[in-house]
Write a protein that binds this DNA or RNA. Structure first.
Lengths: 344, 344
DNA sequence: TTGAAAGCGCTAACAC
DNA sequence: GTGTTAGCGCTTTCAA
């Protein structure tokens, strides 16, 4: 089933069929109808390889994830569903427009990123690329894609620059979480920061601090630093709970550290949320299964990826991409780890 | 960077370069070396679209999953990691051989499966296809792929036929779980079956029954039927626990039903594993986070997918595929939901 | 062992 | 509006 079969069947040249497929101008409605009928009748579908060869789209969008981090998540099986959510948002949105998402792993840290990426691009010749953290902020990758001149989006990136940045509003999310706890009556609300390698860590801290100030609440010794790992969550929580005036609520910058905080609380005999409220970031599946289930900021990975795909396809159709980040609001999911502080 | 650039650089015809790329015979080692040097120097990577057009491989393997089921899992965010494990096993194995896995969702139940699948195959022209449940046992799909003559594997399928079947040994896994409980001293070991739509459900029941008989233990009223849903797990467990002589251990055919069983036990004030031991099937991430974490049969999804990819690539290289299913053993992961029964 | 020629299915450029 | 021609980057003949 090639374009020529269709052409023969409809009694036109293959070029006219091509015009119909691509919805190009200069085809009489009557002819277009006839060609479309032949296409449907014969069940013809253009080969994307051939389309690509003819010099047009490949209808492929490449989604790049960090190899080590992704494989580690897969092996650990801790229920992190970043990839699933990314596929959910990205594949479905791509499919809406006749594109396909193709998923690849690339080393961020290696010095051969550039070579590896060039090879993938040469082999696949995608029409666009989606970068996820930490690639989204990797200057080598950004520079390379910009030079090549391919459309790309950076998920979770907070600065403008080449490629569209799409991200959630980290500051606002942290502020909302803080406000929620304050409105429950908490005065001493601590915050465990994430790895300084990610710029979003700073934003989350900033959101918390801003809201605390707005509420006229002290922040002095209530910021503990973590790095997104369980271990760092443990030490940060220990540090906070041994303060002379310990917090009655803790916001952790990700679920893993929140899990650690919960474990520490349990170990010290503190009831959650009775003695200590816990607020988490990310809302990965695991927080539904802890005792108690955790209240969390929902990181809208599916939405962000869908948005990224949408932006790329938009630009492929000739629209300019915004050079400022596109920011969406995160939601809060209230579960049972937050409550008013004990009147003590 | 095309094959001609390399040819020019190495001072040979592009045809010779093609031979080197494809590791074809009739190239003097000396020439081969020279060409390879040019390839490396220029960072040349063949375009898969062009390779495909030339009439050879596309180096693409299509992995097909059920659309509704997959999207539902993604939306529910219960931590099911089937897709992740599949990518872990499949992508990495494919990459080892220079192939890429491309992931698609297809409706199983719709009457237009055939059209949908034909369109995908026509567009992508993959070299092979991997079918997962319930596609692996869908006669329309199997027939279609067989007619087209494409290499394909059926993951989780238990019968031979066109395409290689790769599956875990369901019977043996169920028997092992049963044996484990029996060896702890349990006499009344109940089993909650899965949906009869899946042939593996029967196999799991058969394994349990066989082992029970081997141990000379009664099975009479100890088989409860479920359908893999939480709700069915609840009613099955209720039924079992209200028996005059209730079981001291329950094996559930999947994690979701095991979760339900745990919830029922809690509600009825039964301690797990003190009063009731629980054994689950699948070992999705969630069973690590329950109280207590569940002992489970590990469904080796990554391994199965890797095996499927391997079989397909093998067949692409001219090897015959086995016409009998390739079966691998499942592992048991012991956690804290199983123990010796109380001496009551 | 190597190279030259033809063609894969499509699109872009141009002619009609 | 529609058809014709050339060519995308590769592989598969087949001739040398």
């Amino acid at each position: 089933m090639t374009i020529r079969h269709v052409a023969a069947d409809a009694g036109v040249s293959h070029q006219t069929v091509s015009r119909v497929i691509n919805d190009a101008p200069n085809v009489r409605p009557e002819v277009k109808r006839r060609v479309q009928a032949s296409i449907d009748k014969l069940g013809y579908v253009p080969s994307i390889a051939a389309q690509r060869m003819g010099g047009s789209r490949s209808y492929l969008i490449l989604a790049l994830n960090d190899r080590d981090r992704t494989i580690a998540d897969w092996r650990e099986r801790q229920g992190t569903d970043w990839i699933d959510q990314m596929l959910l948002g990205g594949m479905l949105k791509a499919a809406e427009h006749g594109y396909r998402l193709i998923f690849e792993l690339v080393d961020t840290h290696a010095d051969h990123v550039e070579r590896e990426l060039r090879a993938t691009l040469a082999a696949l010749q995608p029409d666009g690329v989606i970068l996820t953290p930490p690639h989204s902020e990797n200057p080598h990758i950004i520079k390379l894609l910009d030079e090549i001149g391919i459309a790309f989006a950076r998920v979770g990136a907070l600065q403008g620059g080449p490629g569209v940045a799409v991200a959630m509003d980290e500051e606002s999310a942290a502020a909302s979480a803080t406000r929620h706890l304050a409105s429950l009556g908490h005065k001493r609300i601590a915050f465990i920061s994430g790895s300084p390698e990610y710029s979003l860590s700073k934003r989350r801290v900033a959101g918390w601090r801003a809201e605390m100030e707005r509420e006229k609440l002290p922040t002095d010794d209530l910021l503990a630093s973590g790095d997104f790992s369980f271990g760092s969550g443990t030490s940060a929580t220990e540090a906070l709970l041994t303060l002379k005036d310990p917090p009655t609520a803790i916001i952790a910058s990700n679920d893993r550290m929140a899990l650690a905080a919960l474990a520490v609380a349990n170990r010290r005999g503190l009831a959650v949320p009775g003695d200590l409220s816990l607020f988490s970031f990310d809302n990965t599946p695991v927080v539904r299964f802890t005792q108690p289930p955790l209240t969390a900021v929902d990181q809208p990975v599916a939405e962000l990826t869908a948005l990224a795909v949408d932006m790329i396809i938009r630009s492929l159709r000739g629209n300019e991409l915004p050079d400022q980040p596109v920011i969406i609001e995160a939601g809060l999911v209230e579960r049972s780890s937050t409550a008013a502080p004990c009147a003590s």
